[in-house]
């Protein structure tokens, strides 16, 4: 439901993977192919003896231009990565519904469906917990109902029950309320023995 950029996540993982394959492959080839190893050795010797001034000569203190450049690139990449991490999740909305535009627009606060649904559903035995939230999905607020089911209850019955509760909510508010329902377990807590009804 959240606005995590999943494509970017996958792209980032793919990029790191490809970089590692390239680096690992290069190291392995260095060990496996003698011709490549000797070539690399001679290049290394050349670099060590006749290094360019921007690589070898210190410009600030004892660091060459290359070292400072690497530090700068590292800093920029760190900032980008921090932004990337910070972009995960998000997308929660305080509004459950927004309609109309321009001069007349209606906004239904999340508190209203939350109160109505909790009143409707929290008394039910089948549920061990209920969480009502709202997310902005593609610019439209959408209600999210997370229902923690008790051990052994039929998810079909619970989903029908919640579907009815949402229908009632829509009737009260007077318009469609885009809703996503998730049924979860989490039976470790609150799995107290309940009498079996066959």
């Amino acid at each position: 439901m959240n606005s995590t950029n999943r494509g970017l996540n996958r792209f980032f993982i793919l990029l790191v993977g490809l970089l590692l394959i390239a680096a690992g492959g290069a190291v392995a080839v260095l060990g496996a192919v003698p011709a490549v190893a000797s070539q690399a050795k001679s290049i290394a010797r050349q670099l060590a003896s006749g290094a360019q001034p921007w690589v070898a000569d210190p410009t600030v203190g004892k660091a060459s231009l290359l070292v400072l450049g690497i530090a700068l690139v590292a800093l920029v990449l760190i900032v980008l990565l921090l932004v990337f991490i910070g972009r995960q999740g998000h997308g929660r909305s305080a509004a459950a519904l927004r309609q109309g535009d321009g001069a007349m627009s209606t906004r239904v606060d999340l508190a209203i469906p939350r109160a109505l649904l909790e009143e409707h559903l929290s008394e039910r035995d089948e549920l061990a917990g209920l969480r009502i939230s709202a997310y902005e999905v593609r610019g439209t607020p959408m209600l999210k109902i997370t229902a923690r089911c008790r051990r052994g209850v039929s998810p079909a019955e619970v989903s029908t029950m919640i579907g009815r509760a949402v229908d009632d909510l829509e009737r009260i508010i007077g318009t469609d309320v885009p809703t996503f329902v998730q049924l979860t377990g989490g039976f470790r807590a609150g799995s107290a023995m309940r009498s079996q009804v066959a």
Binding site: G17, L20, I21, A22, G24, L30, G31, A37
Partner: peptide, 28 residues
């Protein structure tokens, strides 16, 4: 790096490449 034992280079390179492969698979 090129002066290291070839066996060590191959082993280290292979481990790094396999980690990379796992990530590529995870991404796709």
């Amino acid at each position: 790096l090129p002066s290291l034992q070839p066996g060590v280079l191959i082993a280290v390179g292979a481990v790094i490449a396999v980690i990379g492969l796992v990530l590529v698979i995870a991404a796709l």
